[in-house]
Design a protein around this nucleic acid. Sequence first.
DNA 1: CTGGATCCTATTCGATACTG
DNA 2: CAGTATCGAATAGGATCCAG
Lengths: 127, 127
Amino acid sequence: MKKEISRKCEHDRDNCPVKDVLNRVGDKWSMLTVIMLADHGVLRFNELHQLIDGISQKMLTVTLKTLEADGLVSRKMYTQIPPKVEYTLTSLGESLVPSLLHLYDWANTHMPEIKASRERYEKNISL
Amino acid sequence: MKKEISRKCEHDRDNCPVKDVLNRVGDKWSMLTVIMLADHGVLRFNELHQLIDGISQKMLTVTLKTLEADGLVSRKMYTQIPPKVEYTLTSLGESLVPSLLHLYDWANTHMPEIKASRERYEKNISL
DNA sequence: CTGGATCCTATTCGATACTG
DNA sequence: CAGTATCGAATAGGATCCAG
């Protein structure tokens, strides 16, 4: 098979971008947050809170902080009462979107197969 | 911004393929396992164990079972002593690879920016 | 409105020991 | 060789209350 793919981290435990970035992408809320921002452009905290179904306040805060630290999301705060904070994707964040949508489309396309496979698997187990 | 992207799961809590598939993709070892199999074609249990640096036996077992249940990996067992089991990607699994590599390439490309951003962020925190 | 701080639970995961 | 079983530590994540 295609050996050229193999430019990864078999023996580079501390410096593996795959693990690192994918742990970020793969956490429970980061990707949905990025997609929402890609979709809507600018969003305030509470707007995100409502758009991302099921997220808790705490996790939204944590997720946004992490994304900001990574430079994927930028945060603009208006010092006023009541406070107002706007979140947008940075250009780095935008550059992630195509890959995410690629994956998203795969998920949408193949979800029925995966579900069917899981059910078959369960039945075979319970025999 | 591009509103057409918005074909996702704002209010579809139980049937969101993004969450589901990405929790799979994003778990600690699944993606690396798929990439290894994409890379090498056929691998035995212990070969995977050695290729995927840092994975424990238990997690490799769990990961492979999950991938098999989802229909991404197929498992061929030779009933002999000592046992021999071969893992390969199914065609469904293969269809995931391009998306994964897309993401992988993004990670490789932008890792320096992310690291730099994190360091800037840390410094600002500690001021 | 936008969070920070705290408590508590569930899940994840590694280490270890054992098996056909 | 290819797992299974069990234990315990660490982490993630939700609920709640509080604050500027």
